[in-house]
Simulated scan of single mutants.
Amino acid sequence: MIRLGLLMLVTLLGVFMTLDRFGQGDLRTERRPEPATRASAATDAGAPSLTAPAQRFPGPPLEPSPEYAGATPEAAQVVPADGPVLYVTADRVNMRAGAGTDNPVVASLTGGSAVQALGPTGGEWVQVQTAEGRQGFVSAQFLTSDAP
């Protein structure tokens, strides 16, 4: 039993001496890549670009699908600007595909955004159109006719 303890002690001592002799320094620091130096926009303004510009390779010309081969594209439907202009009162409001919270969100409107009412404004939901032409429904409680 004593011989076994002495053998383990000598083995551990040999391992520690080997590690002490050959294990100098942090080996991981030699393998780490050097951090990239970042230049601010102010110091780099006017300097020529060191990267090549991205090349664009055009694809084949677009062709209509077979079911629309002889048809011409329809013009986008534009709603006349005859409805009242309403403004969003909350910080962010969801514009939905239909009247009700169970309909999917079409867009998100920020506070103060101007929208045009496309339908009656007296109900719980108002059909509106954004300046970009997107149409949807917004809860009437988040709309007002008073400009921000």
Rank of each mutant, 00 (worst) to 15 (best):
A54E: 05
V15A: 11
V105A: 14
A117D: 10
V88K: 11
L9H: 11
M17Y: 08
G25I: 01
A140C: 08
D146W: 09
D91V: 11
L86Y: 06
P84F: 04
V138Q: 11
D26R: 01
S65L: 15
G111D: 07
T121P: 05
L7G: 14
G133R: 12
R28K: 01
F16A: 13
T11Q: 12
R31M: 00
L86Q: 06
Q77V: 15
A107H: 10
L6F: 10
R56L: 12
L143E: 07
T89Y: 10
L7C: 12
F57D: 05
G122V: 13
G83K: 10
E132C: 03
S40E: 00
T18D: 06
A140Q: 08
A131T: 14
A36Y: 02
T121Y: 08
G123N: 13
P66H: 08
Q55D: 08
G14M: 10
V79P: 02
T29G: 00
R56S: 09
P35R: 00
Y87P: 10
M1G: 14
F142I: 04
Q116V: 10
R28G: 01
A69G: 08
A76F: 07
L143Q: 07
A36E: 01
G136C: 06
Q24I: 00
P120S: 14
L27P: 05
L6K: 04
V93K: 07
R134L: 15
M8T: 11
R38N: 00
L19A: 07
G133C: 12
L143P: 06
A54D: 04
A117P: 10
A140F: 05
P104S: 13
G100M: 13
D102V: 15
V78N: 09
S40F: 01
A99D: 14
E67Q: 12
P33L: 00
R96A: 09
A47P: 02
A36R: 01
Q116P: 06
G122H: 10
G100Y: 12
G46V: 01
G83N: 11
G14L: 11
E124C: 02
S65M: 13
S108H: 07
A99M: 10
E30C: 00
S108N: 12
A117S: 13
G23W: 03
